[in-house]
């Protein structure tokens, strides 16, 4: 059965996609050459056009929106809240304007709590992970005392450690960005620590530092040689920090010559003066 021109054109497009040239394809259909040639040239031009690609920012923004949507589709239930709301807010909700304001505020709080709860166990690559980072930033901004800020930094550092372990368990890969973030948060925690900080907090700092070192040592055998060097450097940073924290716990961290208090003109970030901060890039 003779093919119609529409089918012939479709076959020619298939051949073009397989790598045939316009001329070689047209040679198979000499009777249709004049009709097919301009059409195939246009097809070739369309196939060669660069594909429009979205920006990473646009994809990120869309994923955040989707994350919020998922949080709404996964409502978090709070036992006892329903009963409490009826008994405490029952009278207030009788006034329409006040009821509306309270409802809106409550919805916002619930949404925020819901999103935060759902995103708490996320790891990089998860849709809710950016929300987790945002939640951390918000809680940090709402902290006013430097001890509270230092505590939060320490919590974030601990979180990054857990995430490194999770990622390593899931994909058998070391996430360098997380490792970097873990050390930086711990470094920031030390920088935020006030000189008159409590012994409890110093003990906590020391415990987290030891825990991080243990974690790093536990997965050192599982990483390749390039990553092993990075892990070794990170372990050395933990060692240095451990010595410094223990010195601080003994109350003599400023007494040794190399750890003497800086002159006023040398005031800078504590970590830079001590040789494990930004001035001593651990990645080097």
């Amino acid at each position: 059965m003779e093919k119609d021109l529409e089918t012939i054109l479709d076959d020619c497009i298939d051949e073009l996609r397989k790598g045939g040239s316009v001329e070689s394809i047209l040679a198979k259909y000499p009777e249709y050459k004049s009709e097919l040639k301009p059409l195939l040239e246009l097809v070739q031009a369309m196939e060669q056009l660069p594909k429009p690609e979205p920006s990473a920012d646009a994809v990120s923004a869309a994923l955040v929106g989707i994350g919020e949507e998922i949080a709404l589709l996964h409502p978090v239930e709070f036992p006892g809240l329903k009963k409490k709301r009826r008994s405490i807010f029952g009278k207030l909700f009788q006034q329409p304007r006040l009821a509306w304001t309270l409802s809106a505020a409550l919805a916002l709080v619930l949404m925020f709590v819901g999103i935060s709860t759902v995103s708490a166990n996320s790891v990089p690559g998860d849709i809710l992970y950016p929300l987790k980072l945002v939640t951390e930033k918000v809680s940090f901004l709402l902290a006013f005392s430097s001890e509270r800020k230092a505590e939060l930094r320490l919590t974030f550092s601990e979180q990054r450690t857990k995430e490194i372990r999770q990622v390593l368990q899931q994909s058998d890969k070391l996430d360098e960005r997380l490792l970097n973030a873990m050390l930086k948060e711990a470094q920031s925690a030390l920088e935020e620590t006030p000189n008159d900080t409590s012994a409890i907090f110093l003990a906590k700092l020391n415990a987290v530092n030891t825990y991080q070192k243990d974690v790093l040592e536990s997965f050192r055998p599982r990483v390749d040689s390039a990553n092993e060097k990075i892990v070794n450097r990170a372990i050395r940073v933990c060692d240095m920090r451990g010595r410094w924290i223990r010195g601080m716990m003994r109350g003599n961290w400023d007494e040794t010559p190399e750890r003497r208090s800086p002159a006023p003109h040398q005031e800078g970030r504590r970590s830079e003066r001590r040789g494990w901060g930004p001035g001593c890039d651990w990645m080097r």
Binding site: D126, I127, L128
Partner: peptide, 11 residues
């Protein structure tokens, strides 16, 4: 409604 699958599908 598994979040990871939705993220992958969106991507």
């Amino acid at each position: 409604l598994e979040p990871k699958a939705i993220a992958k599908l969106s991507e």
